[in-house]
Design a protein around this nucleic acid. Structure first.
Lengths: 176, 176
DNA sequence: TCCTGTATGTTTAGATCTAAACGTAGACCC
DNA sequence: GGGTCTACGTTTAGATCTAAACATACAGGA
């Protein structure tokens, strides 16, 4: 059987983690734990679910992220390496490797950009488009089910709070 | 300069992603995007911040996760490989590798468990405890700053919604 | 006692990422 | 024209993870 952590959400409540730190390192700042621990756990659970779902569908998350980003860009579905790095939130080096793998598998082509001679334009092949069309509906339908217990209002509230948190992280992270 | 994605939060609003999918694959289910996209971005921003903060402090996230989990367990700060896998939310194979690296660096010891001959007990060395004591305060202080823009009420609301989402993911993920 | 199944760890192959070092290509300025 | 700076990509080293194959150690039943 597949080896896997027994409890994908973590068996230790976040509050107990704060308590334990206060016992082990008295006076330590613990108020971020109530947010960051559940956030981290949910993100991991979602990432694991996505990986397994995509494995069933015959793609891997990195390649689908690449193909999806190109497809979402709209016709003619072409972006440079730099644009892909920005939108996929990974380094240019990671994009270079993703594109190399996808090109090897016949899913994208790499051509000199018409705009600038140093830029590289990446575009899905027909097979690349087929992969997107075959998998994205199934993936999004599955993820719809994962958030199904939350009402529309709760989802909106959660999305808004997460965007506020993103702003907070951006504020505090950049200067330091 | 260090190479890095230009905008750690993603420049494309989540709503635009849903719009783009509806244009490219008409009728696709997009209502999960408003939750999962910002969640994913914040989690990545926090992970990146943590990695850089710990790099400054001279540890790596995987090793500190291991040492922290042992320390939080309380005296005598000993857990088996299996317990570590459950609490760290990674596979037993990953724990085996983390422990091997930490043991090589003199941060933990691996001894036969007194309970069962097939179990392995992992415990921090003095140096391992020093690393925890030296870094965890700084890390938690930094993460306190990252969530500082949210009020206490917003943090509680966010934590609660995330735990509800975790339950939803667990419900939908296990049967399938 | 022996057999079988389950639990616990380790190892390995392959994918992936970051960080940093490179190598060019344009741009700007004198 | 030549020098310098910045932008764009690629490559490489090293860390990390999952999944799957192994290797034991127990436990329970016949």
């Amino acid at each position: 059987m597949t080896e896997y952590p027994l409890d994908g959400t973590g068996s230790v409540p976040a509050a107990d983690i704060a308590t334990a730190w206060d016992r082990e390192l008295p006076g330590v700042a613990t108020s971020s734990i109530g947010v960051i621990t559940p956030l981290w756990r949910v993100a991991k659970a979602l990432a694991d679910e996505r990986r397994r779902t995509l494995h069933r569908l015959g793609v891997d998350p990195a390649t689908l992220d690449l193909l999806s980003t190109l497809r979402r860009a709209g016709e003619p579905w072409t972006l440079t390496t730099r644009e892909l790095a920005e939108r996929c939130l990974v380094t240019a080096g990671a994009i270079s490797q993703r594109v190399a793998r996808a090109e090897r598998d016949g899913l994208v082509t790499r051509t000199p950009s018409p705009v600038s001679r140093r830029a590289v334009a990446v575009t899905p092949t027909d097979r690349g488009h087929e992969v997107v069309e075959r998998t994205v509906r199934g993936l999004l339908a599955h993820e719809e089910a994962l958030v199904a217990d939350l009402t529309a209002g709760e989802r909106r509230a959660l999305g808004d709070l997460l965007e506020r948190l993103a702003g907070s992280v951006r504020n505090a992270g950049e200067p330091g």
